[in-house]
Computed example of a mutant assay.
Amino acid sequence: MDRLLYVAMTGAKHTQLRQATVAHNLANASTTGFRAELAAFRAVPALGQGYATRAFAVEQTTGADLSSGPFQQTGNDLDVSIDGRGWIAVQSATGEAYTRNGQFAVDSTGLLKTVSGLVVQGETGPLLIPENTRPSIAPDGTVSAVSLDNPAESNEIGRIKLVNPADTDLQKGNDGLFRLRGGDAAQADAAVKLINGGLEGSNVNTIDQLTAMIATQRQYDLQVRMMQAADQNARAASQLLQMNS
């Protein structure tokens, strides 16, 4: 009875957390390059004197779904998508991070950035686009500056840092960016290629997530009924003890 109450109580709490994960995925179903978060439940024994009969149900985010999202043609020369495996390196507030969102723009200083304001990392540093030019991005990540006065004139600026670390080495942050678990910077991989003129959509399957939301709500209701059953059992046991005393 004691075990039933604790399992149901913690199960209800962490079912709510799982619902939040599902809701977060659904909210980002149209976010460029978004990777759906995965969650799972596990049982954890309660440690300490007097807790031998108690166990907890805990929900935890086990990682992210790293499968590719659908390609969406935009026709914008500054929109790129990873062709297959790989990541684009950007500079975040905590250091180098990685994204699949290839929606770029040039700011007022000429820096190539993502639309969210993160500086796109080149293999030798940030990429600065000269005035009176427009950037051109090749499939290998090479960025060139094409003169607006003479389109035949093009100068290579640098190469976007494209990486392809093992999936097990990556972890997703609260900002939606990925980083190496050890905190180091990944090495550039020349085998990673880009597709110009389009973006990769979110890999969230809305039907699966809506189904998961319904199932999670039903699971929460079940946990609440289990707590009520445990309370009723405790009351009945108390009455029997009073009658026998």
Rank of each mutant, 00 (worst) to 15 (best):
Q91M: 12
R181K: 15
L199D: 02
S136W: 01
S245W: 00
L162D: 06
V192F: 05
E37Y: 03
H24A: 14
L194H: 07
D83K: 14
Q232N: 10
N132W: 02
G122F: 03
T114I: 06
E200S: 10
A229M: 13
V7A: 14
G110N: 06
T124P: 00
V7T: 13
V80P: 06
I160Q: 02
V146D: 00
N205K: 12
P45D: 12
S92A: 14
G176Y: 08
Q121S: 15
T142S: 14
G117R: 05
Q209D: 04
D79H: 14
E37K: 12
T211L: 11
I160L: 09
G69E: 09
Q187F: 05
D169K: 04
V143H: 07
D65S: 10
I195M: 12
D169C: 04
Q103L: 01
Q91D: 12
N132M: 05
D65Y: 06
G69C: 08
Q223V: 04
N28C: 07
G95C: 09
N205S: 13
V7Y: 04
S136M: 08
I214G: 09
V224C: 01
P70W: 09
L241P: 04
V58D: 09
S108T: 08
N233R: 13
N150F: 09
A52N: 07
T61K: 14
L112R: 01
E153W: 00
V115L: 12
A97D: 11
R159F: 06
T21F: 02
G102Y: 03
S116C: 00
R179I: 03
Q72G: 06
A57L: 14
A191K: 14
W87Q: 05
S136K: 08
R100T: 03
L177G: 06
G183M: 02
N196R: 09
V120S: 07
P45W: 10
L199A: 03
Q73S: 13
S147H: 07
M9F: 07
L78I: 08
L222C: 00
V192A: 02
L194E: 07
G50R: 12
R181Y: 07
V58K: 13
G75Y: 05
L112C: 01
G95R: 09
A12Q: 11
N25D: 01
A138E: 12
L199G: 05
A97N: 06
A40P: 09
A20W: 02
D2R: 10
N76W: 01
G158K: 07
H14F: 12
G33L: 01
L17D: 11
A188N: 11
V106Q: 11
I82A: 10
G50W: 10
G50K: 13
V115M: 11
S147L: 07
N150S: 11
V163P: 03
N76A: 14
T211N: 15
Q171F: 12
S92E: 06
E156V: 13
A8G: 09
L112N: 03
L5N: 04
M1G: 11
Q91W: 05
N132I: 00
A97S: 13
E59N: 12
G197Y: 08
D167R: 11
I157K: 07
A138W: 01
G125C: 09
W87H: 07
V58Y: 12
L38R: 14
